[in-house]
């Protein structure tokens, strides 16, 4: 017999569509999306992890004028205890470990005795800020460029899409590195804006594609025939239908953003000393790998935890908005 494709053939309408269509209580679009999202277990796990990381990073060492609960700072040095080994222990004593213990320096200390937990938390804060900035900036630019090109067509579209092509011609990391070289000196906000300014091209193309196809749909035609203003058509009729694509890709932009920022910081082009990010920490301590490996492990684990969580959330959102869309990392 045939090999499986146990997925219901979409052309026939999935059985759940049928079931939902038949049921007496019609669900709203929002409810359906929420229900599908919460069915995605990895996405829920991602949300919990990401939430935990954010809370840990900001509550522990505090931020701005707000103090945190952790008594050490990421800049004050102290004497190095026990070769700077981490005191964190997660293995209960009956399993042969040291018991569940937080200790004096849970993540250890670096060579001048700075508490590494505080340092990693600081790096996490900075990396998160930059990643979210990248997400916001690239989504804003990508959505506007794509929407403008897709809606107005003609000359506007040609100019915008040519410009997008030019930017795509420069590999993302290269372009980001060039802009970050200048912006990185000006602090993390400038860095986030600069990287966001080069990572929007994929979204612009996606949104333009959505717009082109939505333009031709009856309800837009009808609105246009009724003399509705372009702006109103865009915001009232087309935008709501592209929200899914935009939200999903904003999420993935954040995941890509944290990898890009940490890579640039690793290369010395992103967050600069004396400030730290998860990437610059790895660059600082990569040579410590053979002797004090924890200095290398912790920041990496946090990068992976954040990126993986965000990617899972993105996958859950995509499933919720459009179960049939596929994904590419740019």
């Amino acid at each position: 017999m045939s090999t499986e494709t146990s997925q219901p053939n979409p052309a026939r309408g999935t059985p759940s569509d049928a079931a939902e269509g038949m049921s007496v209580v019609a669900r709203t679009q929002g409810q359906i999306i929420r229900r599908r999202f919460f069915r995605h277990r990895a996405a829920i796990g991602g949300m919990i992890t990401l939430g935990a990381v954010i809370i840990l990073a900001y509550s522990s060492i505090g931020f701005g004028p707000f103090p945190g609960w952790w008594d050490k700072t990421y800049y004050s040095t102290a004497s190095v205890v026990d070769g700077g080994r981490p005191t964190l222990s997660l293995l209960p004593s009956f399993l042969g470990g040291k018991g569940l213990r937080w200790g004096e320096h849970p993540f250890g200390q670096d060579n001048v005795g700075i508490d590494y937990f505080a340092l990693v938390m600081r790096g996490t804060q900075q990396s998160l800020v930059v990643a979210f900035l990248i997400g916001i900036v690239s989504t804003a630019i990508g959505a506007s460029v794509g929407a403008t090109a897709g809606f107005f067509r003609g000359r506007t579209e040609a100019v915008l899409m040519r410009a997008t092509d030019v930017i795509i011609a420069i590999p993302t990391l290269i372009f980001a590195a060039i802009l970050a070289a200048a912006a990185g000196r000006a602090g993390i906000v400038a860095l986030g804006l600069a990287i966001g300014a080069v990572t929007w091209t994929g979204l612009a193309r996606l949104v333009r594609g959505e717009f082109l196809s939505l333009r031709e749909k009856e309800f837009v035609e009808a609105a246009r025939a009724a003399g509705t203003k372009s702006r109103r058509i865009i915001f009232k009729h087309i935008m709501p239908n592209t929200v899914g694509v935009i939200i999903v890709s904003a999420t993935l932009a954040i995941a890509g953003g944290i990898l890009l920022e940490t890579a640039l910081s690793y290369l010395g082009l992103g967050v600069r000393a004396p400030d730290v990010s998860l990437g610059s920490l790895i660059s600082l301590y990569e040579t410590a790998m053979p002797t004090r490996p924890w200095l290398f492990w912790w920041p990496g684990i946090f990068i992976v935890a954040i990126a993986l969580s965000v990617n899972f959330i993105g996958d859950g959102l995509r499933d919720a908005f459009d179960p049939r869309q596929t994904r590419v990392r740019d």
């Binding site: 995941a255 990898l259 890579a263 660059s283 990068i303 990126a307 990617n311």
Partner: peptide, 27 residues
């Protein structure tokens, strides 16, 4: 082999790879 253990493992691996910083893995 959609929905097999192989498929699930690979899907997870792909997500992990999407989330790994290259420089960290290289080190």
């Amino acid at each position: 082999r959609q929905y097999s253990g192989f498929d699930y493992t690979l899907t997870f691996a792909a997500f992990l790879f999407f989330s790994l910083p290259v420089f960290w893995v290289a080190v």
